[in-house]
Design a protein around this nucleic acid. Structure first.
Lengths: 130, 130
DNA sequence: GTGTTTGCAAACAATTTGCAGAATT
DNA sequence: AATTCTGCAAATTGTTTGCAAACAC
């Protein structure tokens, strides 16, 4: 779709990607911003948003829109499912195998072309149950 | 969760629900607003939002957050799956049976309690393919 | 009459964007 | 030197909220 302009290196982008790789809790842009700022104090929120978009456009990270309000980001790019807690809003990975067959199945009766799907479970996380 | 205050009748709410029942394309709040305004010119956008939230809280309609940006609303409240077009953004119903088993399956390895899921397919709709 | 709902406008939260200067190739 | 990238601030978008008047029961 969008042709890629030559990509230049940037300390900021490196830091963002590196940080995301250390986290399994699917941070929001704001969380990324606040964390990175502890080691790189003048990074701006705009830069964080720009790089998160750039990275997810290039498939180096995944953008999650589970809750319909805040986007979250995941450095684990292999297709997998998520869970969102109705109480605290935390997002976790679900260890079910990703099913390509369901796309075929859906395609059979669909007047168009299905290329993938996102599946988000909801309920209460272990912390919110107790 | 939230205790229900006695519900009073409102022409606006009736109109919104009636309108939604005539549509299968999962309109956004803004679409609802613009449509209703053709027959009820001084309805306000705030009222539309308030009633859409109220109706979905009461389970009379469903709020869809497929694309992570705009919410859409559906008067068809029985659990079913959706499709969103990567090109034009239209949202359509998918005629796959809703699977309760998948929640059980996910629950088996999940440290918490899963109560449901939302599944959204993506790809290109018939109009965008040609 | 009491309490809910409305219209309006202002407030809000998340995200995007324009621009001049800094960094990368 | 040519471009991309950054910081900053202002702009945009979608949605929520406070308030006084209007409406429903």
């Amino acid at each position: 779709m969008a042709q890629q302009p030559t990509l230049k290196h940037s300390r900021q982008r490196d830091a963002i990607l590196a940080f995301l790789k250390t986290r399994k809790d699917h941070p929001t842009a704001d969380t990324v911003y606040k964390e990175i700022r502890t080691t790189m104090p003048n990074i701006s929120l705009g830069t964080v948003y720009r790089n998160l978009s750039l990275l997810s456009d290039r498939g180096e990270i995944i953008r999650l829109s589970c809750d319909g309000k805040v986007d979250r980001f995941d450095a684990d790019t292999h297709p997998h499912y998520h869970f969102i807690c109705k109480q605290c809003g935390c997002v976790k990975d679900i260890s079910l195998p990703y099913s390509e067959q369901i796309d075929q199945l859906a395609n059979e009766t669909f007047d168009g072309s299905i290329t993938g799907h996102t599946l988000c479970f909801e309920g209460y996380c272990s912390d919110c149950i107790s």
